[in-house]
Design a protein around this nucleic acid. Structure first.
Length: 673
DNA sequence: GTGTTTTTAAACATAC
DNA sequence: GGTATGTTTAAAAACA
């Protein structure tokens, strides 16, 4: 058969660096390759062919796309702010900017030069995930800070207005509204139009997502789209032609005649009130990025007035020039006294502030979601135990984070091997697997370290089906599982495999049949599957000597081993302490229990294994093999005439786990090759 | 361009 | 007949 010949070819193939090369193919090629087409065909084809699986596929596409879209938005935001940084700073090369860039580990050249010309995709490719994440966080923080700043300012304005009107306005007779009211309504209309325009612009830029519940309501979507820096300008509009002012008011939902019920909502101090209220970023860079150069610093001086800045009245839409504070106070008391117009403006301001607050909350929520998502990203460039810590990765220099065996994965640290799609579509159908198989991460240790992650996060594990099946089987005391138990292991261990059952189960069956390393053993109760470890290791070309790639891998492996301590130290500080807890470490490394002959494994691999293996000291008993039933009647299984797996004792009684563990150092076969 | 590996889809067979 | 299991083929993709 084809399979047979293929296997034989594999065995006899001299392909030196295949230990690495095949791993690359396995991880990226296989995953990515099948992924793209498979995903597409699954989404489409299954819908017609299999209603259930089609629905699943379609169902899973949406969140992935949404996630991707949000990532794109975030990248756009990052670009925007980088652009502002680049243009706003007087000298791009000054210390502040450098500190800023270095603080987030974003290359200065990239951070300062690229935003104008980089697409989000390019940024994704150029920036490593930690850098990208740091950049995103920085820019999100910037945006939040801006919003908060403006929110604060508006609040101050509003309070002051109310205060002034309460004190001074009471004595003054009410002015006739008449034209003023009309003009104000026209201003509202103008503001609405500007906001709509701005919203469209932002949506075009991907800065604001057009969500169904937002797109319909002008009141909601308008202020949401308002950039804090633009809001003051919205008050200054000339009378808008066309639409009657009343209509605009109604459409906008700004009930000028209503009570100021909403006013109470913002009197409470905003919960998002920034600890970073000052104008410094977490990285120390001052927030001089926005055009809001005129307000904050000046207004916050004790002798100033929140509504007075740069010699002019900051009352929304006023901008009357006042020579000094006294003039301004006088102007304030006369022009902005307690009347209907001022009240209406106040209410509008309330709406603005309220919407800003809403937007801030939404943005904050989005930020949290993004950070949570990025934090749990399983396939970071850090190949060993990817999802453990992004934050740790952030704190690492590139040399530490990036794949030690980067033969296949580009030496370019800026092009994360799987970040592009897989990590951003963590829940999506993309098949691009990114890391561990490729980068020689022992599956058992990685699974051990990230057990909880894979268990809960809808992320495709970066292992091949074969390696997962093997792991499942090896985790059981007797190294054998029925197909259904393998299914259960998949679903138990990986949230990802709780969906699309038809697809991956088929793949599991296919792999079981395809790979000679999986041996089916007949049982009275049915068939169980075992692993022929020798065959499994044969999948990897044993000899890797002489290959430059191998040399690189060896070096990388050694580096990895040497750096492992630092990495572990960083892990300790990660925000996934659970995964670093001793109990979490390597609970399922029963794969290492298997007695293995290393004869098929090339010496370099052993070198890598001994030096570079991140297998935790171990060994705790399997923790998640509890559902696996111990197969019985192994003797009968021997009668079926099928070749017994030479290295897999079907009889649990003959298995001495302790001895086995001593025998096997987590073989690099799958993981290292 | 070729070969390898993996994934996915699909058809088919068999057993329960 | 439906479902689970197992086998096989084919196509696609990525990578060396």
């Amino acid at each position: 058969m084809m399979v047979e010949s293929a296997s034989e070819t594999i065995r006899s193939a001299p392909s030196g660096q295949n230990g690495v090369g095949s791993l690359s193919g396995q991880a990226d090629g296989g995953g990515g390759g099948g992924g793209g087409a498979g995903a597409a065909s699954t989404a489409g084809g299954c819908a017609g062919r299999d209603a259930a699986s089609g629905a699943e596929s379609n169902g899973e596409m949406s969140p992935a796309e949404l996630l991707h879209f949000q990532q794109q938005q975030a990248l756009q935001v990052a670009r925007q702010f980088l652009l502002q940084q680049a243009s706003g700073l007087s000298s791009p090369g000054n210390n502040d900017s450098k500190q800023s860039a270095s603080a987030v580990q974003v290359p200065v050249s990239v951070a300062m030069m690229s935003p104008q010309m980089l697409t989000p995709q390019q940024m994704q490719q150029i920036l490593s995930p930690p850098q990208l994440q740091a950049l995103l966080q920085q820019q999100q923080a910037l945006m939040l800070q801006q919003l908060q700043e403006y929110y604060k300012k508006q609040q101050e304005q509003l309070h002051l207005q109310l205060l002034t009107q309460q004190q001074a306005g009471k004595q003054q007779p009410k002015e006739a509204l008449g034209n003023k009211q009309l003009a104000f309504q026209q201003q509202l209309l103008q503001m609405q139009q500007l906001q709509q325009q701005h919203l469209l612009n932002l949506q075009r830029q991907g800065l604001v997502s057009l969500q169904p519940n937002q797109a319909s309501g002008p009141l909601q979507n308008l202020p949401q789209a308002v950039c804090p820096t633009d809001l003051p300008q919205l008050w200054k509009g000339e009378g808008a032609p066309g639409q009657p002012a009343e209509d605009s008011v109604k459409q906008e939902g700004l009930d000028l005649t209503g009570t100021a019920a909403t006013a109470t909502s913002f009197t409470a101090p905003p919960k998002v009130s920034p600890p970073l209220s000052h104008h410094t970023l977490p990285n120390g860079q001052p927030t001089v990025l926005t055009p809001r150069r005129d307000s904050s610093s000046h207004e916050e001086t004790p002798s100033s007035h929140p509504l007075y800045g740069h010699g002019e009245c900051k009352w929304p839409g006023c901008e009357t020039l006042c020579e000094d504070l006294g003039h301004f106070i006088k102007h304030l008391n006369t022009e902005h006294a307690l009347d209907d117009r001022s009240t209406a403006q106040c209410r509008v301001q309330m709406q603005v502030v309220q919407q800003l607050e809403i937007q801030l909350a939404k943005e904050s929520e989005r930020l949290q979601a993004m950070m949570a998502h990025l934090h749990m990203r399983p396939s970071e460039p850090k190949p060993f135990s990817p999802p453990v810590t992004v934050s740790a990765a952030d704190s690492f220099p590139d040399g530490l984070v990036h794949p030690p065996t980067s033969a296949a994965a580009p030496v370019t640290p800026l092009r994360p091997p799987g970040l592009g799609s897989a990590s951003l579509h963590s829940g999506g159908p993309t098949r691009r697997r990114s890391s561990s198989d490729k980068f020689c991460s022992p599956i058992s240790s990685e699974l051990a370290q990230n057990h909880e992650f894979y268990k809960n996060a809808d992320v495709r594990p970066p292992f091949t089906y074969a390696s997962l099946i093997r792991q499942a089987i090896l985790e059981t005391p007797d190294r054998q599982l029925t197909l259904n138990e393998i299914y259960n292991w998949f679903t138990r261990m990986f949230a990802y495999f709780r969906r699309n059952t038809a697809t991956w189960k088929n793949a599991v069956r296919h792999n079981l049949s395809l790979h000679k390393c999986f041996v089916r053993v007949e049982n009275v109760k049915g068939a169980v599957w075992t692993v022929d470890e020798r065959e499994y290791q044969k999948r990897r070309p044993p000899k890797m000597t002489g290959s430059p790639t191998l040399v690189k891998n060896m070096i990388s492996g050694l580096s990895y081993g040497a750096l492992n301590a630092s990495y572990q130290a960083a892990l300790a500080e990660s925000s996934f302490p659970l995964l670093n807890s001793p109990g979490m470490l390597n609970p399922g490394s029963t794969s290492s229990l298997l007695p293995l002959s290393h004869e098929d494994v090339g010496a370099p691999v052993e070198l890598l294994s001994s030096n570079g293996s991140s297998s935790p000291p171990r060994l705790s008993p399997p923790q998640y093999g509890h559902q696996v039933q111990v197969k019985e009647e192994p003797a009968e299984a021997e009668e079926d005439g099928r070749p017994r797996p030479p290295l897999v004792p079907p009889n649990p009684n003959t298995t001495g786990p302790v001895e086995d563990r001593d025998l096997e150092e987590e073989l690099p076969g799958e993981e290292l090759s």
